[in-house]
């Protein structure tokens, strides 16, 4: 992904480039504002986006302040004690969308206990890191999954009628 301002031959002035990403950024030391390739991939092509229909939803979680800031909604269906299907929708920055997407990949197919043990650090590590100032965005995914798992437990405890949301 080469970009970086290219040189226009006539003026020697830094001019527009065509490629999307400044390559020199990858060598920047310390926390930077920008995201790595894998994060951008999960941001531009998020996995497991969407909703599960009520009839297929065994657990649902919504996290984030109702009036401001990022928000995440997450749906799971459970088969044989494992997360069979997982879907999410998110309002937030690229970090929030990418970490939610990666979380769904990590959780898919896991037993419920395994899913509960996924941490923010697991998600960030799987993404190859996110900018230091964006770490707070990753909290939403794991919290959303925990909310959905708790919802599943509550439904099971009350021998859940499938009234979702």
């Amino acid at each position: 992904m080469a970009m970086g301002p290219q040189r226009t031959p006539d003026t020697g002035q830094q001019g527009p480039g065509d490629d999307p990403l400044p390559e020199q950024m990858e060598d920047l030391p310390g926390p930077v504002l920008y995201y790595n390739e894998l994060v951008l991939d999960h941001f531009t092509r998020p996995r497991n986006v969407g909703e599960l229909p009520p009839a297929e939803t065994d657990g649902f979680g919504v996290v984030g302040d109702p009036t401001c800031g990022d928000q995440l909604k997450l749906w799971i269906s459970v088969r044989g004690g494992r997360i069979a299907r997982i879907r999410f929708k998110s309002f937030g920055c690229p970090g929030a969308i990418a970490t939610s997407s990666m979380l769904t990949e990590l959780a898919q197919g896991r037993s419920l206990d395994e899913a509960r043990r996924i941490t923010d650090d697991d998600v960030i590590e799987a993404l190859g890191g996110i900018p230091e100032r964006k770490r707070h965005c990753s909290l939403l995914g794991v919290r959303g999954l925990h909310a959905a798992l708790s919802d599943w437990e509550a439904r099971r405890a009350s021998e859940g009628t499938r009234t979702d949301r």
């Binding site: 999307p20 990403l21 941001f43 309002f91 690229p94």
Partner: peptide, 12 residues
């Protein structure tokens, strides 16, 4: 949609 998401998507 989040403003920063728009900025990054446009950057790409």
């Amino acid at each position: 949609v989040d403003g920063e998401s728009v900025v990054v998507a446009l950057d790409l």
